[in-house]
Amino acid sequence: MQPLRIALAQLAPQLGLLDANFARHHELLVEARAAGAGLIVYPELGLTGYHLQDLAAEVAMRADDPRLLALAAETVGCSAVVSFVEESTDHRLFIAAALLEDGAVRHVHRKLYLPTYGLFDERRFFAAGDALRAVPSRLGLGVGLAICEDFWHLHVPALLALDGAQILVNVASSPGRDVAAVNAGGLGTAVSWRTLLRTYAQLTTSVVIFCNRVGVDESVSFWGGSMVLGPSGDVIAEGPFYDEALVIADVPLADVRRERIGLPLLRDERPELLARELGRIVAERAGLADDSTAMPSSR
C-alpha cells in the first residue's frame, strides 16, 4: 500500500466572503495536487468564515450548490474535505463538512455538537446533525468526518472507528486561548487538542487528521497547529501556530493494519455491551425504568 500524501490547508477564511474563499480553495487544491497530495483537508467553515451570526443564512448553500460541485469537479483522482454552511430542504442550517472525491460530493457530515457556552454561541444560529457515518473512500480505507466540538465527545471517534473508519478527519475553527506560561508551547487550547488527538489515534488505532484555521474573526484568533497523527499516536506533521500554511504529511497507510494486528483494541471492542448499557441509561434517564445505580436513600 502506497503512503498517502495529505495536505492540510491551514488558511484564514474571510468572514462571509464566499467568492473569495472559494477562489482560495481552488488555488490551494491546485497547489496541493501539484505537490502530489491525494487528500486535501480544509478547516471548519473554510468557505464562509466562523463568526457568522445572522450572516449564516446569507452564506448557506445546498449540498448540490453549483459552486460546491465546481470544486468537487476538480477532485478527479483525489479526495478533499471542505466545510461550509449547509441548508437542508426544510431550511435548517448546519455546519457541514463534505468529502469530495473523483468529481463528486461523496458524503456530507453535519456537525453533531454545537458548543453554546463560554465564547461559543453556535446553537443559536445552527441546527445539530443527527447522523454519524464512516464512509468508504477511494483511498482504500474508510473515512470518518467530524467537526471541531464533535471531538470533545468521546464516542464520536469511537463510533467512527467501529463503523469502519481508519482515517478520522476533524476540521476545526478552534479559537486560541489561555496563554498561561505553564502551558507547554504557551497555549492551553493547543495542549488540550494535542492530548485528545493523540489519545484518539492510539485508542482507535487510526490515522487522525486535524485541520484548524488561522486568522482573526472579531475578538478571537484561531491558532492553527493542524496535525496528522499515525495510528500509534505519533505526530507525523504539524502546522505552525497562527500562520497560514499548506502542511504536507506522508502517511504510511500500511501502519494502520500493522497497528491493529499488534494492538487489537478494535477487535476486542464490545458494541453489544455498549448498546445494552446505553439502552438502559437512556431508559432510566427518561424515567421509563428505575435508576438502577441510584443511592438507596434517593430512591
Binding site: L15, G176, V179, A180, A181, V182, N183, G185, G186, L187, G215, V216, S221, F241, Y242
Partner: peptide
C-alpha cells in the same frame, strides 16, 4: 505565578489582531 503568560504567543496574537482589525 498563576498570572504569568507566554509573552511570545501573546505578542504574536496581539500584533496579528491589530493588523486584522485595521485591514478588516
Amino acid at each position: 505565578e498563576e498570572l504569568a503568560i507566554d509573552t511570545g504567543i501573546a505578542r504574536r496574537v496581539l500584533t496579528a489582531f491589530i493588523r486584522a482589525q485595521l485591514r478588516q
